[in-house]
Design a protein around this nucleic acid. Structure first.
Length: 500
RNA sequence: GGUCUUGUGGCCGAGUGGCUAGGCAGAGCUCUGCAAAAGCUUCCACAGCGGUUCGAAUCCGCUCGAGACCUCCA
């Protein structure tokens, strides 16, 4: 069997994954900034790296998965007046940053659960690690790679570049960055415009503030990840993940900071997922096409023709390789909805197949070989930089076989007991455990099932009497209620619930 | 403007130089009292123009289109 290869953004090629500590894997993923509601764009990295996490565990690694929450920085609540932040108002009327953070953190956690993402091993908050960040900044100053200006501290990129390769991750060239003609406000304090903030002096109206050796302020954006990754995963660790938009300056700066403090480059494998577009356009406020998760799941957005179940979204994201852009459209999502349903029904059919009377070994050599290949390839595809799209394609080749066994087009003896068990395992392991998919939940199954059996038997009696008016009426009215009856070949009747 | 990525059939998307990706939609057939589901078969491609090669969706160049980053935004 093949071994896991990961595309490393740093080297721009696929590399064999070799963990620093045998048997263990450290994974750090940049989490959300909880100053607003999670949207579709957030879904992709967390689903992508959830699959990475699940697959590493499947391979037998003991994984420590750290995903932070950025709850410090420039915080404002949408729609609030700026004066809210100033102390004219009574305490309870004022914007309380931690209340805001709590609200959006809860919503984010809800979204993650809906997507069936596993909880990370540690979910550290930036505000909970102010001390570590200050210590790190002090160290960088002591080593001469940062300077203080008016209560703010900046990282000296030019000096760093003298002895280190600044830009090695993002492909930036320092000279180009220095020559950039962009003139932005608030750059005066910096010695060079490429320098970035480690600590920012807080203006009086700034709602998040902590004391530091340089005065009241708040940490710069990049330092939190360096501090928390180092604390929980060590000076050097295996995998760091995040969206491609974070490559520069965020991850480039992380490397610089950590390299100065720890004397070595922090990350062995950098992984970056691509972005999501909507109808071919990037998701952004100017296009008015940002879809929040609550809107996505409820269908309550002008762009959306219907609600989309979190599992449909997860499935759709996994049908594309994580390094490709992914375009969202109603058409694509609706196709995914049907496709996922088909796959999950095939899985359910497979589980109900009884192979007791079958030959132990299959006697259709060609078919047996084809099915074995389809199952085995799932491992190879995952090992090839997490090619979830190919894994799913194989399941669509397995599904007709499963349905054909049920339908009688393929005899059980052709497959044999052993291979059937292997197929069951493959469905369970890859679809459920690794890709994290699950059947779309059916509500109140217990009582519904009893009621359905009554209706089905009444309809059967009508059919026996050739009273098709009655039997069709039952079926048609159930359709309107979102329940689809299916007359199976063996005379039994099954039903499925519509998803939306 | 700079750096990087990308352009596949009606829609979405795999694709490592030569061998059917796959899904959804369309067409036909089988099964069915009729449906649905399922099975089988099938139509429709590699942005454009050049080049390398016995052979290119895949490599190279140019043209056109799209995207990401270049910000104290995350």
């Amino acid at each position: 069997m093949s071994s896991l290869n990961i595309y490393n953004s740093l080297t721009r090629q696929k590399e064999l994954f070799e963990p620093l500590t045998p048997g263990h894997a450290g994974l750090y993923v940049c989490g959300p900034t909880v100053s607003g509601e999670s949207h579709l764009g957030h879904a992709r990295p967390y689903i992508t790296f959830d699959v990475v996490y699940r697959y590493l565990m499947f391979l037998g690694y003991k994984v420590r998965y750290v995903r932070n929450i950025t709850d410090a920085g420039h915080f404002e609540e949408e729609g609030r007046d700026a004066t809210d932040k100033i102390s004219e108002k009574s305490h309870l009327e004022k914007l309380e940053p931690m209340e805001l953070v709590q609200k959006y953190t809860n919503l984010y956690h809800w979204g993650m659960k809906e997507f069936n993402n596993l909880d990370p091993s540690i979910e550290p908050t930036a505000t909970g690690h102010i001390v570590e960040q200050i210590e790190m900044i002090k160290d960088i100053i002591a080593k001469g790679y940062a300077y203080e200006k008016n209560g703010s501290v900046y990282f000296d990129v030019k000096k760093y570049a003298e002895g280190h390769e600044y830009g090695k991750l993002s492909g930036r060239i320092l000279e180009d960055l220095l020559e950039s003609t962009r003139d932005l406000e608030g750059q005066d304090e910096k010695n060079n415009k490429v320098d970035f903030a480690l600590w920012k002096n807080a203006a009086p109206e700034h709602i998040m503030r902590w004391p530091s050796p340089w005065g009241i302020g708040f940490p710069g954006w990049h330092i939190e990840c360096s501090a928390m990754a180092c604390k929980y995963l060590g000076k050097q660790f295996d995998i760091h993940g995040g969206g491609m938009d974070l490559l520069f300056p965020h991850h480039e700066s992380e490397i610089a900071q950590s390299t100065i403090v720890n004397g070595e480059s922090p990350v062995r494998y950098w992984m970056h997922n691509n972005m999501i577009t909507i109808n071919g356009k990037k998701m952004g406020k100017s296009y008015n096409n940002v879809i929040k998760l609550t809107e996505l799941f409820s269908g309550n957005h002008p762009i959306l023709e219907q609600a989309y179940h979190p599992m449909v979204v997860r499935f759709y994201i996994l049908t594309t390789h994580y390094r490709s852009t992914l375009d969202f459209s109603n058409e694509a999502l609706q196709a995914s909805e049907k496709a996922l349903k088909r796959l999950m029904e095939a899985k359910s059919v497979l589980e109900q197949l009884n192979s007791d009377a079958w030959a132990v070994k299959g006697n259709n050599a060609d078919l047996v070989q084809k099915l074995n290949t389809l199952c085995d390839e799932c491992h190879d595809f995952m090992n090839d930089d997490f090619s979830t799209a190919k894994v799913l394609a194989n399941f669509f080749e397995l599904a007709p076989v499963v349905n054909s066994i049920k339908g009688g087009q393929i005899a059980g003896d052709e497959i044999g007991q052993a291979l059937l068990e292997k197929m069951k395992t493959t469905f369970e392991v890859f679809l459920i455990q690794i890709l994290g998919l699950k059947p779309i939940a059916e509500t109140d199954h217990g009582h519904l099932d009893e009621v359905m059996q009554v209706l089905i038997s009444i309809r059967q009696e009508a059919k026996l009497k050739k009273d098709f008016t009655t039997s069709d009426a039952i079926r048609n009215k159930l359709i309107q209620a979102g329940i689809q009856l299916k007359d199976e070949k063996d005379g039994t009747v099954s039903y499925t619930l519509q998803t939306s």
